[in-house]
Amino acid sequence: MDYNGAAIVAMKGKNCVAIASDRRFGVQAQTVSTNFKKIFEVHPQLYYGLGGLATDVLTLSEIFEYKLSMYKLREGRDISPKTFANLAASTLYERRFGPWFVEPVIAGLEKDGTPFVCGMDLIGALNFATDFIVSGTAKEQLYGMAESLWEPDLGPEDLFEIISQTLLNAQDRDALSGWGGVVTVITPEGATTRYLKSRMD
């Protein structure tokens, strides 16, 4: 869990949700790349982030891609956030005694527009939050920032500002994450993704 490093956070707003991550890929203290993808799109109303061991982030995103494409073809519709949360949790629990070292964060809007965020531990114990979810090596720092900045019923622009400040200031206090950030805000109209510049040291 502390080998590659990550900072991932998702927050609820008023009729919107946001999910953000850092962009570093490193092996312990050595940074290898600053454009590593940790947030993945399921469909425009549902995104998820994976924090933890980079190899498992990649493998698990591939497993989800497989399961989600089969789901979509079988059902003929997009998966709902709640259903995806349970799919992710049972996928993780399948490896109860040899787990994927990954803690997913899920953010999306339900079909009726209700915001949804949830997290889980590496064996799929779900945590349905009413406010925000954090994951990665900067988890503690993210909790501190989110606890002090987040408030209920933020609009999309305010939510973007709050989640960006939470991410940037948390990752600056974590040696293993940072080197740029990416934020996706999901509203009923669609998702917008913005890249953040940050300290590169």
Binding site: N4, F25, V27, V32, S33, N35, F36, L53, A54, T55, L58, T59
Partner: peptide
């Protein structure tokens, strides 16, 4: 770039 764990990055 790829390491023995299977972590890969372009």
């Amino acid at each position: 770039w790829m390491d023995y764990l299977g972590a890969m990055v372009k």
